[in-house]
Amino acid sequence: MNSKTQNKIAIGALYGIAGFVVLILLALLGYILVSGMPQLSWHFLTAPAKAFLKGGGVGVQLFNSFYLLFLAMLISFPIALGAAIYLYEYAKDNWLTTTIRTAIEILSSLPSVVVGLFGFLFFVVKLRLGFSILSGAFALTFFNLPLLTRSIEDSLRTISETQREGGLALGLSRWETVTKVILPAAVPSILTGVILSAGRVFGEAAALIYTAGQSAPALNFMDWNPFNISSPLNPMRPAETLAVHIWKINSEGIMPDAKAISSGSSAVLVLAILIFNFAARYLGKRLYKRLTSA
């Protein structure tokens, strides 16, 4: 067999594998969307859920998902950014940083249900935060930190060493080089990492069941005082998210239209992540343009 035929066979095989992956993805996505889209309506997206009757919506769950995502990112992003900058830009390669990296790696492969149970014992019970958005956000932070740190560190790694030399040789301090040269250049790549981890966080259920809870008390969307219990912004209220909702109605849902709501919720979840992705990518490009060239 000559190398030309070999090449053709290899290309064919690779096409086959890639096609197979795309096929699985499309089938899954298609199934979710086809069975879920018909359920979608303004009512479904905004109405509160009903426990026994049909016709409930996922408004509260949807809001909870976004709010939890926002809080979790608010907590984990600065920490991950700081950790990544320290690890890549400052830390020397020694046993300490090796230990930190190994710890991050182990933490990132921790099953999310373990993170959830830890969150339950520590935040919910020990720190008496109860089933609350805050407990959920902390649990998600634990879940999210390792991946986010790794991805930001990888983003920093993609910026050429010559840029660092250029900054330092210009009489910038290391900190100025990092914040004024490296970070602006790394923004699109960092943002991609944030989006990917946001998708994971948005769809996470197991870590939230025991921390943010499985109940979604009705919210008063006119009340934006975070200290009121019915306010959407109150971080101390229990908050079932969309992903947890899907899990719950599939395991113990007793409303007559449980199947339809579950399909609809799945479609909303997938669509939200898709929209989120595109929006963030667009934003990343705009941001990069603004940061890098006037």
Binding site: Q163, G166, G167, V181, A185, T292
Partner: peptide, 12 residues
């Protein structure tokens, strides 16, 4: 100051 082998303008 220093100028390097590979031109390294910042992405600005």
């Amino acid at each position: 100051g220093m100028v390097f082998q590979q031109p390294n303008p910042f992405p600005f």
